[in-house]
Write a protein that binds this DNA or RNA. Structure first.
Length: 479
RNA sequence: UCCUCCUUAGCUCAGUUGGUUAGAGCAUCUGACUGUUAAUCAGAGGGUCGUAAGUUCAAGUCUUACAGGGGGAGCCA
């Protein structure tokens, strides 16, 4: 018989027909005459209840069925005689597809710590929490593609292996086919990369932005959505060595158009999650609420769905770096010396604590900071006429901090070339990028959204290692 | 990379000012129960207290080193 997925079964309004269902056992409860199995196949957070009448044959099978076992069940879909669910499956034939030895299977029908599950990453998808995150992650990927497609953007595949080492976004992972035990050397003792696969040193990309700019200067509106690699020794709840980034790039956009797009996109995907992932969000919300109970009253945060709606319904606050410095400098927090790094002079980079103060204490909503000092930002950002600032824009979210970093790009050849020289970026490695400013240059802008940081916000999870199936972080490559 | 905390049963945790035989819930096994909802009730098995060394009459408890993990900071998305 053809299998029906559990989300379909639970939606059924007409009961009383024969079906087949397959899935993994979440719990089994028994009494003298009847046993109940909660079965889940990942199509929904909800389980279907399988009812098994006790007889000699079923007794033997049930002894081998424990949490984690895979089953195929033929039976009648009927209205439930119990009160916890609308429909259930009255089993006529049970088949064990795969047993799970209860003395070895690590997952139990109870709450496990996220730390424990991280060490069981090969099985954690089978928990309610991680299957919910998996489904939401898919929905967000789809929503992002839909958002851009509906607005006439083209998706571009930027390269994963790159020969450019001047993107300046962070430490890079080297890619080589040279024999590490026996590296070819030049007469001066340095490694001879002309003998390497590409004839030069190669790395994994840290950003697709520069390539996206090339595409935008022909296709007008493009976006990348691909893996990104940073070899920084970052050990935090919001950094990964391998993460997915969305980088739209638009010709004829200025910084204000860029901010509008960023805000629209974030609101669109939040709305999409509320529309399509409510079951999973409600589960994660309940889970969070239980965790929050253990916290002090003033450390508790807004309920997950309420928080998503709040961001959706309120315009983001847009202020300049200079205005932010004034707010921080004159804040009681600064005067009472509650910041670890006190704000004194214009020009300093903002610390996490300052960003959090602006978002969580002062404005109490997402903030877009613009026009940063040029010395703390990348070489490609559009220089303002004041000679001090650039048209950068960072979107700051509660709890997460920077979720988007973007800017209008410098389109004037001479200004870009001068800035590269000032920052010691070798022109010969970036000649192709500079040429776009030589031929038919136009104002353009773009931004980068860290996909896992978006996932942190949508799911309310606290650690970025829990919103990507197989996290890559320093000293960790087990799965 | 820096600072800080944690490691006790398969899992989550308790373990007093160092003191006799290290506890609980869940899970597992046995039994009871006419439909349960992370079922319930009764009983059983399960631990060289992360590893190594030290202090002490005595260490799960104190000290040091190492390992694994968490949180915070920096770098950023």
């Amino acid at each position: 018989m053809k299998r029906t997925e559990i989300n379909e079964l639970l939606k059924t309004t007409e009961a009383g027909h024969k079906i087949n269902v397959k899935g993994w056992v979440r719990t089994k409860r028994g009494s003298k005459n009847v046993s109940f199995i909660a079965l889940n196949d990942g199509s929904t957070i909800n389980n279907i209840q399988v009812v098994v009448e006790m007889n000699e044959e079923n007794d033997k099978l049930l002894e081998r069925i424990h949490t984690g076992a895979a089953l195929s069940v033929d039976g009648m879909l009927i209205e439930s005689a119990g009160s916890g669910q609308r429909v259930e499956v009255q089993a006529t034939k049970l088949e064990i597809l795969g047993e799970a030895n209860p003395n070895e299977y690590p997952l139990q029908p109870k709450k496990h710590s996220l730390e424990f599950l991280r060490e069981k990453a090969h099985l954690r998808y089978r928990t309610s929490t991680f299957s919910a995150i998996g489904r939401i992650r898919h929905a967000m990927i789809f929503a992002i593609h839909k958002f851009f497609n509906d607005r006439g953007f083209y998706n571009v595949h930027s390269p994963i292996i790159t020969g450019s080492d001047a993107e300046g976004a962070g430490e890079m992972f080297q890619v080589t086919t040279l024999d590490l035990e026996n590296m070819p050397k030049n007469p001066d003792g340095k490694i001879d990369f002309s003998r390497d696969f590409f004839g030069k040193a190669a790395n994994l990309t840290v950003s697709g932005q520069l390539e996206a700019e090339l595409a935008a200067l022909a296709l007008s509106k493009v976006y990348t959505f691909g893996p990104t690699f940073r070899a920084e020794n970052s050990n935090t709840t919001r950094h990964l060595a391998e993460f997915w980034m969305i980088e739209p790039e638009m010709a004829f956009y200025d910084i204000n158009d860029d901010m509008d797009l960023a805000e629209d996109m974030l609101k669109y995907v939040i709305d999409y999650a509320l529309e399509h992932c409510m079951d999973d969000l409600l589960f994660l919300s309940k889970r969070l609420e239980e965790e929050e109970k253990n916290k002090k009253a003033d450390e508790r945060s807004m309920e997950l769905i309420e928080k998503l709606r709040f961001v959706l319904d309120n315009p983001f606050e847009r202020i300049t770096y200079t205005e932010a410095i004034d707010i921080l400098k004159n804040s009681n927090h600064n005067k009472k010396k509650k910041f670890q790094y006190l704000i004194e002079d214009w020009g300093a980079d903002l610390q996490s604590e300052h960003e959090r103060y602006l978002v969580e204490k002062h404005f109490k909503k997402p903030v877009i900071l613009t026009n940063y000092p040029k010395d703390i930002k990348a070489f490609y950002m559009k220089q303002n006429d004041d000679g001090k600032t650039v048209r950068a824009m960072d979107v700051l979210f509660p709890q997460i901090g920077e979720i988007i970093g973007g800017s209008q790009r410098e389109e004037v050849y001479s200004k870009l070339a001068d800035r590269m020289a000032e920052m010691h970026i070798p022109e010969e490695s970036m000649w192709w990028y500079l040429e776009t400013r030589k031929f038919g240059t136009v104002p353009h802008a773009g931004f980068g959204l860290g996909f896992e940081r978006l996932m942190l916000f949508i799911t309310g999870m606290g650690n970025i290692r829990d919103v990507i199936p197989f996290p890559r972080t320093p000293q960790n490559l087990e799965f």
